[in-house]
Computed example of a mutant assay.
Amino acid sequence: MADYLKHKDYLGSVDFSSEDGVLYGKVIGVNDLVTYEGTSVEELNKAFIDSVEDYLATCKEIDKEPNKFFKGVFNVRTSNEIHRELSMIAEKKKMKLNELVNKAFDFLVKNEDKVLN
């Protein structure tokens, strides 16, 4: 079971406030804070879809890119042992460490549900 909402290429978080008795969330991976809420799953899903559509329409109207920009560069912290093992695998395969890690990322993206469940 997924704990997120999906509409077009957009994902939305799902959270619950016991104090307010509402479900709520935000659209992930966009340039602005776009939120929604509802008192039922159906209401939350409709609010999410409406929020995505409204945001996309607003971005189009003001000629703004809706999707958050990612440079493709970030630091990954791991243990000394894992770093060493990855370096050795890369050497054996005659690859750069960065190339090896990108292959692992590609595999994860294509197999997310199998690997992370």
Rank of each mutant, 00 (worst) to 15 (best):
V101H: 02
A2Y: 13
K93N: 00
K26N: 15
F105D: 00
P66W: 10
Y55E: 13
F48P: 09
D106V: 06
V115E: 03
T35Y: 11
S13E: 13
F48Y: 13
G29K: 09
D106P: 10
S87P: 00
I62G: 11
N117I: 09
V115W: 07
K8G: 02
F16T: 05
S17P: 06
L33V: 14
L11E: 09
T35S: 12
F16V: 09
I82C: 04
T39R: 15
H83P: 06
D113N: 11
I89T: 06
E85P: 00
G72N: 01
G21W: 13
F16S: 04
V101G: 05
V76R: 00
V30R: 08
D32V: 03
S18M: 01
D3I: 07
E53Q: 01
V14Q: 11
D63N: 12
T35G: 05
D32P: 13
N102V: 06
L44F: 14
G72F: 05
N75I: 04
S40A: 10
I89E: 04
M88T: 03
G29S: 07
K46T: 13
L97G: 01
K110E: 15
E81M: 01
E81P: 00
A104H: 09
I49S: 07
S13V: 07
A2G: 05
L5C: 05
I82P: 00
V109W: 12
N80L: 07
V76L: 07
D15F: 15
F70S: 01
L97P: 07
V52A: 03
G29T: 01
K6N: 11
N67C: 06
F70Y: 10
M1N: 02
A104Q: 08
E19Y: 10
N67H: 10
A90S: 02
S79C: 00
V101W: 06
G38R: 08
V115F: 11
N117H: 08
E37R: 13
F105A: 13
V76Q: 02
V41P: 12
E61P: 12
A47R: 06
F105S: 09
V115H: 05
E85Q: 05
A47S: 11
A104L: 14
E19M: 02
N80F: 05
K71I: 01
A90L: 02
V27Q: 08
E65F: 02
I62T: 10
A90D: 01
G29M: 04
V14D: 08
N98I: 10
D54W: 03
D106Y: 14
D20G: 04
D15M: 15
K71V: 11
L11T: 09
N45E: 15
K96I: 00
L100H: 02
S51K: 05
N75E: 04
S13K: 12
I49P: 05
E19Q: 09
N75H: 04
K94I: 00
N102I: 06
E37V: 03
G12F: 12
E91K: 08
H83S: 06
R77S: 01
S87G: 11
Y10E: 03
N102K: 14
K114W: 01
E42D: 15
K93Y: 08
L5V: 03
L86Y: 00
L100M: 00
Y4F: 14
F16C: 05
Y55Q: 12
E42G: 15
K6P: 05
I62M: 10
E19T: 09
E43F: 14
N31A: 11
Y4K: 13
K103Q: 14
V14A: 14
V22K: 12
F16P: 01
T35H: 13
